[in-house]
Amino acid sequence: MKKIILPALAMLIVAQSPAYAINDKYRKQLEQSGCTQMSELEGCDIHKSKAENAKAGFSNPQAPVANDSANTQTPYAGQWVAKSDAGATVATIRIDSKENVWVNGKRVNAKRTDGTLQFRQGKMTFTIQGDRRLTGEDYWTDSDAGTKGPIEVE
């Protein structure tokens, strides 16, 4: 009988101890901003309010996804950086799982064309290839200046 009670008591004590993966200050920042650790990786800013993050496209990061995320995952989702030939950042691009696109924090309309996602901001056109096995085929063009450069995933 004693052989069963001691291991059961030890397991009960271990199961009741809370695990603290983040510190209290960081947890409060997440709560105040409406971000989660996952949405923060996607660009949600913990230094902004819930309303500001909602305006930036993080309207309800804690809401569960209604349909299967494996079937709705898009190859375009993530953070992207358009660079000049000299290596300077031309634009920062964020694309969510529903293919909503933000260029330098401003929402732009995007469309799928021939296996790519294309969108414009001003005179600049951005093209991101849907097949992620192909490298070096994501690019931007500026029709006004006649320049072109690569787009890289962060």
Rank of each mutant, 00 (worst) to 15 (best):
Q62A: 14
G105R: 02
I93A: 00
S59Q: 06
G43A: 02
R132K: 05
F119Y: 01
P18N: 13
K83H: 08
G43S: 08
N100W: 06
D114Q: 09
V108H: 01
A86C: 03
G115D: 09
K28W: 15
A21I: 15
P64S: 04
Q129V: 07
D138E: 04
E42I: 00
S33L: 09
R27C: 01
R132F: 06
R112E: 08
T125Y: 03
A86V: 13
Q16F: 13
T92D: 09
A63N: 01
W140A: 07
I46V: 13
D85V: 07
D85W: 06
F58S: 05
T113K: 09
W80D: 05
E31P: 10
D131I: 05
G130V: 10
K25N: 09
G87W: 11
G34L: 00
T141P: 06
K83C: 12
A86H: 07
D24A: 07
N109H: 06
I128N: 01
K123P: 12
G87E: 11
A82E: 14
G130Q: 01
R133A: 15
G115W: 10
S17I: 14
S143E: 14
A15V: 03
R120G: 08
S39P: 02
S33R: 10
P18K: 08
L30E: 05
N67C: 11
Y76E: 10
V108L: 04
K83R: 13
A21T: 09
A54G: 14
L117G: 06
I93L: 02
T116M: 03
A56N: 14
E42C: 07
A15K: 02
Q62H: 15
A88K: 15
L134D: 15
A15I: 02
T113C: 04
P61F: 05
A51L: 10
